[in-house]
Design a protein around this nucleic acid. Sequence first.
DNA 1: CTCTGGTATATCGTCGTGATACATCGCAAC
DNA 2: GTTGCGATGTATCACGACGATATACCAGAG
Lengths: 180, 180
Amino acid sequence: MLEIAVLGLLSESPMHGYELRKRLSSLLGTFRAFSYGSLYPTLRRLSEAGWIDEEAPLDASSARSRRGKRVYQLTADGKEHLAELLREVGPDAFDDEGFGARLAFFAQTRSDIRLQILEGRRRRVEEQRDGMRSSLARTGERLDRYTRTLHEHGLESVDREVRWLTELIEDERSGHSAEK
Amino acid sequence: MLEIAVLGLLSESPMHGYELRKRLSSLLGTFRAFSYGSLYPTLRRLSEAGWIDEEAPLDASSARSRRGKRVYQLTADGKEHLAELLREVGPDAFDDEGFGARLAFFAQTRSDIRLQILEGRRRRVEEQRDGMRSSLARTGERLDRYTRTLHEHGLESVDREVRWLTELIEDERSGHSAEK
DNA sequence: CTCTGGTATATCGTCGTGATACATCGCAAC
DNA sequence: GTTGCGATGTATCACGACGATATACCAGAG
């Protein structure tokens, strides 16, 4: 979900598309890349929705910094919208995309919400794991060795994610429930 | 890449869309799902390209098995096209999608090609890993704890995939280079 | 006899990708 | 000093996939 990532980044400071893209890559890591082909349309979309707008071109005054640059900033509506998104604990916050985007802005998220998101995500991933596990148990024998190893590796990855989430949840409960 | 998966499945036996989808899910595991919204358009696309066609409705003879069913089968061109796809060792075979699809049909792939694909995939994943590693080393300190753990977990996953691929490559070299 | 759940096909709007195009800037090498 | 190159910067296009939704038939359970 590019929307949340863009809004989140712009909440830190105004930026133009190119910089946004760089920050995006380093923020989300190789976890998620995003190309210009989706970034620019998204900026237009967010702009039309009124969440962001173009910074005034600081008229006659010296600098004249921008040539082709379009510097975007969050509007008041956009700030509020972002806050709502970061408060959501529905299914959207639990899938790959949604969870990753929210985790990247966890520092701005209320700690009780953080816990709910982590737990929801874990539930989701556990279901996936159980599905894979039983499917492997059921049909695993019939699979050829390559397909089976693909499934096994997939299962291990999902299982590791569950354990990782569990650690995060424990940290959240102990270390952070106290502060604020 | 739905194309290769559909062709691969149809090479085993003719099928209709619904069954194709079920087989697809169990073949690719949760690794990749594919919805009807992409399956049916793909069937049309492959049909237009001449790789598959609709099975003759076994006319007057008793059964009349199909009501709304459309049973698809590989054409001669389709068979050849699939064989070409499974022989490819270009970049397409090394990304997530392309590699996964090909691995699922490794049993039909020549063993020297198998090795090239595994090695190419490993090279690709190693590059990704190195990129993540140096990015973490460079900017890791500045990241907040949540973003950092996201990156670290991502890095570990990619690293595990490299090790997994290495095992597969060794198996392939020892156990299988002899047979055939 | 009705209701549920599996079989079966199909379309729609939305989103992201990868390729491609184009123009400007700073700066290093020659 | 100019030439050329790599980074900066915006933008569009065809394509593939998603998720939701609609429709219809069939079997078996209660």
